[in-house]
Simulated scan of single mutants.
Amino acid sequence: MTSPNILELAVCTITDKDAALAARERAMQAVSRYPGFVSWRALTACETADMIADLVAWESLEAAQAAGKRVLTDPDFAPYMAAIGSVKLMQHFVTEQQI
C-alpha cells in the first residue's frame, strides 16, 4: 500500500540541544496550522548528540513547498531556524511501498 502524502525529511545539526528542542516545539505548533499539514515526527539521533531530524507529512508537494517558503518569514519558526547549525538533508519523498 502506498501513501498519497508527501514526506519531508530534514536532517540537521544543532548548536544548543535544549534551545533547539524548545524552539522545535514552538515551530511544530505553528506548522500544524499550515494548509496541507498532516503530521510531524520529531526525531533525535541516538549516536550523534548534535543531530536531529524532522519527518513531516503533507497532503501534497505544493503544500510542502508553500510551507517551506512560509517558515522563512514565520516569527514562530525563527528560533528553530536559529538553533540549527547546518542542514545535512532536506528532501521530499513519496512512499513507493510499505509493509
Rank of each mutant, 00 (worst) to 15 (best):
P4S: 00
E62S: 14
M90P: 07
T15R: 15
H92P: 04
A83W: 14
T48K: 13
P79A: 11
L43Y: 02
A53N: 01
L89Y: 03
Q98D: 07
Q65N: 12
D54C: 04
N5W: 03
F37C: 10
Q29I: 06
T13Y: 11
D50T: 05
I84D: 03
A57D: 09
S3H: 08
E47T: 10
E47G: 15
I52K: 01
N5H: 13
E8P: 00
D18P: 01
A67V: 08
A64D: 03
A19L: 10
I6D: 00
Q97M: 12
D16R: 06
G85C: 04
P4V: 06
A64T: 03
K69S: 11
A82D: 12
A45I: 01
E59C: 11
K88N: 10
Y80V: 09
L43F: 09
Q29E: 12
F37I: 02
L61I: 06
A66T: 09
T15Q: 14
A20Q: 03
S60G: 11
S3G: 00
A64C: 13
I14T: 08
A10Q: 08
T73P: 07
L55S: 11
D74F: 11
T95H: 06
A22W: 00
A30I: 06
M51L: 01
K69D: 10
L43C: 15
R70Y: 05
W40P: 01
C12I: 12
E96F: 13
Q97E: 07
K88W: 05
W40H: 11
I84A: 05
I99S: 14
M1L: 02
E62V: 09
T48Y: 08
A63M: 08
E96G: 12
P35A: 03
A49P: 04
V71P: 08
F37H: 14
D50W: 00
A20W: 03
T2C: 00
L61F: 07
A19S: 06
T95A: 14
K69A: 14
E62C: 10
L7G: 00
P4F: 00
D18T: 05
E47R: 07
Q65M: 11
A42P: 05
E96R: 15
D74L: 09
Q97K: 13
C12R: 06
C12N: 10
R70N: 07
L89N: 10
P75N: 06
K17I: 04
A82K: 15
F37W: 12
K88V: 11
T73M: 09
G85S: 12
A27S: 14
S32E: 02
R26G: 05
A66V: 06
S86I: 02
F37E: 00
R41W: 04
L61G: 05
E96I: 12
L72N: 08
A49R: 06
V94F: 07
Y80F: 15
L89H: 09
C12D: 03
L43P: 10
A83G: 08
L89V: 11
I99K: 09
C46M: 13
T13G: 09
I6R: 04
D16S: 07
A45L: 05
T2S: 04
Y34N: 04
E25L: 14
V87G: 06
Y34G: 03
A42C: 12
A53F: 01
A67N: 11
T44Q: 15
I84R: 10
P4E: 06
A53E: 00
E8A: 10
A27I: 05
V38H: 02
R24T: 13
L55V: 13
D16E: 12
A66R: 14
P75M: 07
R33Y: 02
A83E: 03
A66C: 05
